[in-house]
C-alpha cells in the first residue's frame, strides 16, 4: 500500500475547505490508511493552521520558512520533491493553486497524474479507478491510473463528503531542515483585489444570470429588462465576461463572485462546475436552455427547454402583467 499525503492549503492560518475533503478522498482509496498532511507556511499563521489540521489528520508534516509565507507553487513543488517519498500518492485540491503545482510535481516525482477527480474506487493492487468529467461536465469518464510509481491526484473541490472524516489528534513532524533554502524562477510580487462596481451581485435575492447562450452583446438588454421588472440583478458566466459583454464584477463562479440568492435564473448557461462553484446557499434554480441534456438541468429545480431569446421577453411581459394587476 503506497503512503498517502494530502497537501493542506491555508490562508492566514485558516484551513481551506479542501483540507477535510482530501482526507475524505484518501479514505476512498483505502479505508484503513493513515493519511499524512503536509503543510507549509511561516510564523503564527502556520502554527494556527497546524492546530486546525491536527484535528483532521493523524500525522502532520510541517515545513516552516519565510519564503512559504505566500504559497508560490514553484517553490512549494521543490519543497515537496525533497520530502515526499518515492511511490507515494499525493492529493491536492484542483483549484488555481493545484493547477499551478500538481502537473509539474507529478513529472518531478515520476508519478502518474490524474487531475480533477470527482470520485474514486478503492485501490486494487497498483490500479486506481477514478471518475472525471470532460467537455464542461457534459460527459464523465472512468479513468484507470497505474500507481506503481506513485501518483499525484487533484481533487474536485466539493466532490468528497467530509461527513465521514473522523476526528484525529495529530502529531506534528517538523520537516523544515530537510527542505532547506530554495529559490525559484518565479517570484510573487502582490495580489490585486477583484474589481467592484455599482451593482453588487452578492447582495441580490434574485439573479438573472446569462451565459454564452445569450449569443450577442446586444441581447444582454433582454436580460436587463427582465431583471429590472423583477427587481433583480444581471449576473453571468465567464464567456460573457471574456467577450466583454458584461464586467468581471458580474461573473459568478470559482474565478468570479460567490453569490447566495434565493432564486437563480440560469439563462443559456451549460452548468460547468467552475460556474456552479459560485452558487451557494441552495437557491431555487430555474434553468432555461435549448439543450435538454445540458448539465445545468441536473442541479436545477425547474427546467425549461427553450430559446432564451424568445423565453425571456415572454417572462418579462408576464411579470409586467402581474405588476399591473397588483397595482390596481
Amino acid at each position: 500500500m503506497p503512503r498517502i499525503f494530502a497537501y493542506i492549503a491555508h490562508k492566514n492560518g485558516v484551513l481551506d475547505d479542501s483540507a477535510a475533503e482530501l482526507a475524505a478522498a484518501a479514505k476512498k482509496i483505502d479505508r484503513g490508511t493513515a493519511v499524512t498532511a503536509i503543510i507549509l507556511g511561516a510564523g503564527p499563521a502556520l502554527d494556527a493552521a497546524c492546530t486546525e489540521a491536527e484535528r483532521v489528520y493523524p500525522e502532520l508534516w510541517k515545513v516552516s520558512g519565510e519564503s512559504f509565507s505566500y504559497p508560490n507553487a514553484e517553490l512549494i513543488r521543490q519543497a515537496l520533491m525533497k520530502i515526499v517519498p518515492e511511490g507515494s500518492i499525493t492529493l491536492i485540491a484542483h483549484d488555481h493553486f493545484g493547477i499551478d503545482l500538481a502537473p509539474g510535481l507529478s513529472i518531478k516525482l515520476n508519478a502518474a497524474f490524474v487531475p480533477d477527480v470527482t470520485s474514486m474506487q478503492p485501490l486494487q493492487a497498483d490500479s486506481l479507478q477514478v471518475v472525471r468529467q470532460e467537455f464542461g461536465g457534459q460527459v464523465s469518464a472512468h479513468v484507470r491510473c497505474d500507481v506503481s510509481s506513485g501518483a499525484v491526484i487533484t481533487i474536485r473541490p466539493g466532490a468528497f463528503n467530509t461527513g465521514e472524516v473522523p476526528a484525529a489528534a495529530g502529531k506534528v513532524v517538523d520537516k523544515s531542515a530537510e527542505v532547506g533554502m530554495l529559490s525559484a524562477g518565479r517570484r510573487y510580487l502582490e495580489t490585486i483585489a477583484a474589481e467592484t462596481s455599482d451593482v453588487d451581485i452578492t447582495k441580490h435575492a434574485i439573479l438573472v444570470s446569462v451565459g454564452r447562450g445569450i449569443q450577442e452583446k446586444d441581447n444582454v438588454a433582454i436580460a436587463e429588462e427582465l431583471a429590472e421588472s423583477l427587481g433583480a440583478a444581471v449576473s453571468c458566466s465567464r464567456p460573457v465576461v471574456d467577450a466583454k459583454w458584461l464586467q468581471k464584477s458580474r461573473q459568478v463562479g470559482s474565478s468570479g463572485k460567490t453569490v447566495k440568492p434565493k432564486v437563480y435564473l440560469a439563462c443559456g448557461i451549460s452548468g460547468a462546475f467552475q460556474h456552479l462553484a459560485g452558487i451557494k446557499g441552495n437557491p431555487f434554480i430555474i434553468a432555461i436552455n435549448k439543450n435538454p441534456k445540458a448539465p445545468i438541468f441536473q442541479v436545477a429545480d425547474v427546467g425549461i427547454v427553450d430559446d432564451v431569446l424568445e423565453f425571456l421577453p415572454e417572462l418579462t411581459s408576464k411579470v409586467q402583467e402581474l405588476r399591473a394587476v397588483a397595482a390596481k
Binding site: A112, F113, V114, Q129, V131, Q133, E134, G137, V139, S140, A141, H142, V143, R144, C145, D146, L265, I285, I286, A287, P292, K293, P295, F297, Q298, V299, A300, D301, V302, G303, I304, V305, D306, E310, F311, E314, L315, S317, K318
Partner: peptide, 29 residues
C-alpha cells in the same frame, strides 16, 4: 493513465421540466 469509457453522469434528482406552451411556462416561472 487510461480512459476506460465515457458515461453520462446522474447528479442530484434533476430538474422538473415545465411542459406547457411558452406562455404557460413563463406564467409558472
Amino acid at each position: 493513465v487510461t480512459r476506460l469509457d465515457y458515461f453520462v453522469p446522474v447528479l442530484g434528482k434533476g430538474a422538473r421540466f415545465l411542459g406547457g406552451t411558452r406562455e404557460e411556462n413563463a406564467q409558472e416561472v
